[in-house]
Computed example of a mutant assay.
Amino acid sequence: MCPVLTVDLARVAFTRCTVPSDVPAGGWTSEERPIGFAATQLVPSWTARTPPGAWIEVELQARTTAGELTKWYVMGRWSAHGDPRTSVPGQGDDDGDVAVDTFVARRPVVAFRVRVTAHGGAEVGSLGVMASAVPQRPAAVPSPYAPADAVELAVPRHSQQAHAGHHPEWDGGGANWCSPASVAMVLAFWGRGPAADELGWVGDDDPGPAVDHAARGIYDHSYQGTGNWPFNVAYAGLFGLDGFVTRLRSAVELEGFVRAGIPVIASLSFKEHELPGAGYSTGGHIMVVTGFTAEGDVIVNDPAAPGDAEVRRVYRRAAFENVWLRGSGSGGIVYVLHPPGLTLPPSNGNW
């Protein structure tokens, strides 16, 4: 059984599936799950145990508003050991296409099934699918804010820029490692991450070996980058965390996680003038939301800073919401990483 929680007005629905530990040789397929609205994007995320030689393949099939079933689309092949760890390009047809980690519908879809095939003794720990339809609004409407005490989580800080030129075989550090740096920060916050004996290959002069380890463990060999959202969640799962990719609708929801003690990794894009204090422009960036000021502004660990000491930033609430939520950006994409069993804040259907 694969229950779904749906909110029509927000047009975001998250489905958490229970996959049997002993996935049959031919794979496991969920029941067809209604979404509750006409969705334009589907993003799965998972954690899995993949001993050497083991891997999983995750696929999605959807039903269009016309009632027709699409083909099965491969959403990722994953192994902790990197063979394989890849998205699959070139799947586009009249119904949609897979853009690295996201099924983008050319004809809106109203239901889906997910299929998991396990190879070599792999086991799936958690599996979820986020369905959404993001309004193509040029700007996001600021969320209401009621004055509250400041909150800030003690998330360790890593600068991606401190790794410029590192390991070109995994996209070369620096400007390309925002996601590994962010995941390494959150792992460290939860007291997780690679042990010292797993970092010997990095080198004694490295400013943050856990970031290099994350880049190696997340790297998508087809996309040739470390920004594959589900792969970041799956990497965190190797260290005992649960996690998922979804869309949040406002800073109110974001603040709910932080006040529950859970830092959130957010994806956003902006021109320099749109996010005062950033000092740079980006077509796509990842940072960790760690707190909120008493005035409601957003405290982040921004790995784009030149060094660890400059990673902590405070961005104005309305500016942050706009570049994070608007349709021309990520539309509110986040990944949430947390210990299993931890109580999450109340949801309106998107986690």
Rank of each mutant, 00 (worst) to 15 (best):
V323F: 07
G283F: 10
E59Q: 14
N322G: 08
A251F: 10
A195V: 06
K271Y: 10
L5Q: 12
T47H: 01
D95A: 14
S222K: 04
K271Q: 12
P51E: 03
T282A: 12
R157L: 12
G227F: 02
G331Y: 03
S87I: 05
H221R: 14
G82E: 07
T18A: 09
L241G: 04
S132A: 15
A210R: 12
D204T: 12
R216G: 04
N301T: 04
Y73E: 01
D212P: 02
V323W: 02
Q91C: 08
Y315W: 10
N176K: 05
V336R: 01
V155S: 10
F37A: 00
F257I: 09
E57T: 07
E68I: 14
P303A: 12
V110Y: 01
I35H: 01
G284Y: 11
H338M: 04
G277E: 07
V88S: 03
V19E: 00
H119W: 14
W72D: 00
I218K: 01
D22E: 14
V211T: 06
A184N: 03
A13Q: 06
S30N: 03
P52E: 10
M75L: 15
A13P: 03
V252P: 05
R113Q: 15
G327K: 03
N301Q: 04
M1D: 15
Y335I: 04
F239I: 06
E253Y: 05
T282V: 13
F244T: 09
F37T: 00
I56L: 13
L238S: 08
I35N: 00
T290Y: 12
Q160Y: 12
A80D: 06
V74A: 12
V233G: 00
P52R: 11
H213Y: 15
N322S: 13
A294C: 08
P194A: 09
N350A: 10
A146N: 02
V288H: 04
G277N: 07
V151D: 04
D94L: 10
A39K: 00
P339H: 07
A234D: 01
I56D: 02
Q136N: 12
R33S: 11
Y280G: 00
S87L: 04
F14H: 15
I218R: 01
V155D: 11
A99P: 09
V7Y: 13
R63I: 07
G90M: 09
V314G: 10
G277T: 05
G165Q: 05
V311L: 02
S132I: 08
W351N: 00
T40L: 08
A140P: 00
K71M: 01
A99S: 15
P263S: 07
V110L: 01
